[in-house]
Design a protein around this nucleic acid. Structure first.
Lengths: 108, 108
DNA sequence: CATCATGCTACGATAAATGTAGCAATGGAA
DNA sequence: TTCCATTGCTACATTTATCGTAGCATGATG
């Protein structure tokens, strides 16, 4: 995959049918994507704070995921610096927020 | 990571804090995991039917994901063959089912 | 027996993620 | 201005995950 994508339709695994849910599941199914959304859930974070929150994940992937999430319209880079959720991103985040409660009951 | 895990605590990225949500986000954030749950949403599928549903993904990963999902208690192998969701798995699946509607509005 | 479908594995090739280091730009303090 | 710290972001070699194809063992059925 190229590292900069512009507006070209990035090849999205399993979504050749054009069904949006597939594209979304694919995007969310990439490493650190869900975690990033989760960590941004209630306040914007700088790239480095986000990295810390994400267990010091490599900046390479984080940057890649942030780019994808920005292109998807879920995340934006505030003009004062710092990454935050867009209204759409916040909506998405709240969509899978019940996972929290579920996970607590699950416990493994 | 070893391919068979027994009962040992599999190293779960980002969940060294022991917070279940992290373990869950990590599990769901692996390739094909969300998709598998999605495809099993309303009926059990044989391993091969599942593979077809998942855009012919390589059996190696699918098998690995199915093992993880079984260990997590979300998926089970019926005695007549075929993979299906456990009650817990169905619950999880319904937790992020609203993503469908969200994705439709999103469209990219 | 022959056939077919099941769950599952081997293994070389390819793609993605990691870990460490560091760059250019910006914004203060000294 | 000079010095430092912080920002977003990138390079690159190593390690890990995933892909793609082939195939095995088992059980059911004709």
């Amino acid at each position: 995959m190229t590292k900069q994508a512009g507006t070209t339709t990035r090849s999205v695994r399993g979504s050749r049918t054009g069904r949006p849910i597939m594209a979304l599941l694919d995007l969310l199914g990439r490493r650190w994507t869900l975690r990033i959304l989760w960590e941004l859930r209630d306040e914007p974070l700088t790239s480095r704070a986000l990295r810390s929150a994400c267990d010091e994940a490599s900046p390479t992937v984080l940057q890649a995921r942030l780019t994808e999430l920005r292109e998807a319209g879920f995340v934006e880079l505030g003009d004062g610096g710092g990454y935050g959720l867009t209204p759409l991103g916040r909506e998405l985040c709240e969509t899978f927020m019940p996972l929290h409660r579920f996970a607590e009951r699950w416990k493994r």
